[in-house]
Design a protein around this nucleic acid. Structure first.
Lengths: 237, 237
DNA sequence: AACTCCAATTGATCCGATGAATATGAATGG
DNA sequence: CCATTCATATTCATCGGATCAATTGGAGTT
């Protein structure tokens, strides 16, 4: 194993062992490099790798610190994975998201405070206003969509679950999904599904919330794969 | 934004845009550094960060290449996250794993080939043999446990789902769980639950497979939190 | 055609120097 | 005595060059 990999693992192990705690300041580069028996440039590459993993954080003129190590922080590299695979693997990411988002929404039904339920309603009102404009501001819709799902997930009582959901669909993926909705009907359907989820949460009904959340993501999946059988049939009736 | 961050994002974008494809070789450090307008040491730190994310791979004397970018590869940083949070967040990770593993096992019921079902049976036979020995080889049990779950997940038909499950519980977490089973009865219960999952898969019964998988992970969750109400009651009866 | 060996290529590691951002503490004014 | 300002030290950021080590590819040999 190379010198840099060794340095990375040593610092990692110091964190796992509790020798380095969240928020703690590391020794200055010169000393830490000497302590680990490597050159300063080598240590910098190790530190840079850990910064990329959101394990460390450097502040010029101040020092290097261990981050909060919160799951949300450490898992956010996943969004890049989602962005890379938006061609081949977007459907697979959405499938995972459907499972997790259904669970999180069901959990949130009994946990989300009333004030945030009101906030959710405000988000939906604003989204409907934006959708009614011509031309539609898709960027705004994307932001509101993200806020809607993030707010629900943040109240599921499981920080890891919320973090995985939050990072499961990178911004590029979400943007592509919304931009793919050239059909105004698709936008309105999405907003109706959001309303349904909101009503279930207002009723504090776990199972309804879970089902509507799953159905919502499923709708996105099917709109991507072009297998929207229901929509086609509904048009006939 | 710093020079290094800019270099990282530039390379990332080249990959997202398809300018750099999986397996492709990058220009030599000297040229690429010149092309990006940074010093060689600076480029190296950017490359090192992408190597840590499993996006790039370097081979001394040969060159730097784009990896396969497979989800399993890119998501494997998650195991470090799980290792760090094994005190506070182990339960939350297990909760997510329960949801995902249940789904994956259900999906695998109709997808896993007969030959792999036989292989699963062999793994269980071997595990029971090891568990019957004295002293018990916990390392061997950990490896067999990992193989069992990985083999099932790999046949769920969703590479992203399989990758997330695979990386959800780091080796440290899995090792701690098994080592926590000082009670021989806990080991035997785990093996019984594995058998139940295997039988459901043999019957190609999605719902049974899903339930047994969920129950299995739930058992691990409860053994960690010490809330094994059922086990306690069973001991009385 | 297969093998051996050497030289070129390329990343790995190290060293030293300068620039830029921040923190610290002394000096100053109220 | 307290708040502000500012010079200075500290620390990371970036750079350029030098040497080491591993791989590759071709020349030469069998």
């Amino acid at each position: 194993m190379g010198v840099i990999e060794t340095a990375i693992d040593t610092i990692k192990q110091m964190i796992i062992d509790g020798e380095l705690r969240p928020g703690q300041k590391l020794p200055v580069e010169k000393n830490l490099a000497e302590q680990l028996g490597v050159a300063r440039n080598t240590l910098r590459e190790a530190v840079r790798a850990l910064v990329a993993m959101r394990v460390l954080q450097t502040r010029q003129g101040d020092g290097t610190y261990v981050t909060s190590l919160s799951p949300d922080l450490l898992l956010d590299g996943m969004s890049f994975v989602a962005d890379i695979h938006l061609d081949a693997g977007a459907g697979e990411f959405l499938h995972v998201r459907r499972i997790l988002e259904a669970e999180a929404t069901g959990l949130a039904a009994t946990r989300i405070p009333d004030t945030d339920l009101v906030h959710l309603g405000d988000l939906l009102d604003e989204a409907e206003t934006v959708a009614a404009c011509d031309p539609v501001d898709h960027e705004k819709l994307i932001a509101l969509d993200q806020d809607f799902h993030a707010l629900i997930a943040s109240h599921c009582g499981n920080a890891v679950l919320a973090a995985v959901i939050h990072n499961m669909s990178g911004r590029t993926v979400r943007a592509r999904i919304w931009r793919g909705m050239s059909d105004p009907e698709a936008v309105h359907r999405t907003l109706r599904e959001h309303r349904a989820v909101h009503r279930a949460l207002l009723a504090r009904d776990c199972e309804r919330a879970r089902l509507h959340a799953a159905l919502h993501v499923l709708g996105v999946e099917e709109s991507l794969t072009g297998s929207r059988a229901f929509a086609g049939e509904a048009a006939h009736g």
